[in-house]
């Protein structure tokens, strides 16, 4: 139950202490052979308390806590979704222009029987892989690879599934030199002109233009505790208050959570997470994401390329319009 390697967030401290205690009792029972009803009862009582506490915590996460959950290192990443949802996956690398960029991973595969192109930001899961994937912050080559894969999807008439999880595009010298903004703009454009269904799911952080470049789809969904924002809360705070420590206030002010974005009609669907968040129940969460994707793919079945483009265009043009607000 309690995992010693688990990363607890600051606000989960009391819970961490409870779970440590439960573990201690269990170990004690295991080593001393003490299986007295008292100990078992105490363990059960504590476990009940821990579950209640977890449910209470996660039922009312404020925007800053959601930001922390969205960035949780154990939250399922693209690699996990790909393994859980895509069969016969063949990764395809490189932009054919300059280099490979592992911050965005993509390829061909089969999703519940359908041939698809999958593309996602990959943050990595340990130090080595985080460095390899540049913490999910793509350079121009990542976006150009995504464009290349969308071109391929168009050619073979395949739906595209994107998984968005990035703090933003990488702000580096080389990235600027090689046209970071042009790459992002072209990737967004490619999403919008695609003649096959494009389903985007924000699984963690949807950070700024680097996210939009993969998230301009027919359907945009968010996991319950993911965030989607124009700039990171830290970035916003450092501009507005010259103090990145006020990120918490910025997260509140910018309205970055799934219910906020649903209300603004920027996302079409929120996928609920099990109590305690996706990182506590990755398999369940990923199947829920898969189910939601499948439903939308079925709904888009039979639509012509022109219809798909038109639907996508209307979807985005309606956002924030006075006459579109009921």
């Amino acid at each position: 139950m309690s995992d010693p390697t688990r990363t607890y967030l600051d606000f989960e401290r009391p819970l961490a202490e409870l779970e440590a205690k439960i573990e201690e009792l269990e170990n004690l029972a295991g080593t001393s052979g003490d299986d007295s009803p008292d100990t078992a009862e105490e363990t059960a009582r504590l476990r009940h308390k821990a579950n209640e506490q977890l449910a209470a915590l996660y039922s009312k996460l404020d925007p800053w806590r959601k930001t922390q959950v969205a960035r949780h290192p154990e939250r399922p990443h693209f690699r996990d979704y790909r393994k859980a949802l895509i069969e016969d996956f063949e990764e395809l690398c490189g932009d054919r222009r300059f280099s490979e960029d592992a911050a965005i991973v993509g390829g061909l595969g089969r999703f519940r029987g359908r041939s698809v192109v999958v593309i996602g930001h990959e943050k990595g899961h340990d130090t080595e892989s985080r460095i390899k994937h540049n913490f999910g912050m793509a350079r121009p080559e990542g976006y150009r690879k995504a464009i290349r894969l969308m071109d391929m999807a168009e050619k073979f008439d395949l739906p595209v599934l994107t998984f968005v999880d990035t703090a933003g595009a990488y702000p580096g010298l080389g990235a600027e030199e090689r046209g970071q903004s042009e790459a992002i703009a072209r990737s967004t454009e490619r999403c919008l002109t695609l003649g096959t269904p494009l389903i985007s799911t924000i699984t963690g952080e949807g950070g700024s233009g680097g996210a939009v470049a993969l998230a301009s789809g027919n359907v945009v969904m968010m996991l319950e505790h993911s965030i989607y924002s124009v700039i990171s809360p830290e970035g916003c705070a450092s501009i507005l208050w010259k103090d990145s420590a006020r990120a918490k206030d910025a997260a509140v002010a910018m309205k970055v959570t799934a219910p906020d974005l649903m209300a603004l009609k920027i996302v079409d669907q929120t996928i609920p997470e099990p109590i305690g968040g996706a990182h506590r129940h990755p398999a369940e969460t990923m199947q829920a994401v898969g189910n939601a994707i499948e439903q939308h793919l079925i709904a888009l079945d039979g639509k012509s390329p022109a219809e798909l483009r038109q639907q996508r265009r209307e979807r985005f043009l309606a956002i924030g319009r006075l006459d579109a607000a009921e």
Binding site: S229, V256, L264
Partner: peptide, 8 residues
């Protein structure tokens, strides 16, 4: 917020 992001 994200409404400005949607202008992209």
């Amino acid at each position: 917020g994200a409404l400005s992001l949607m202008q992209m």
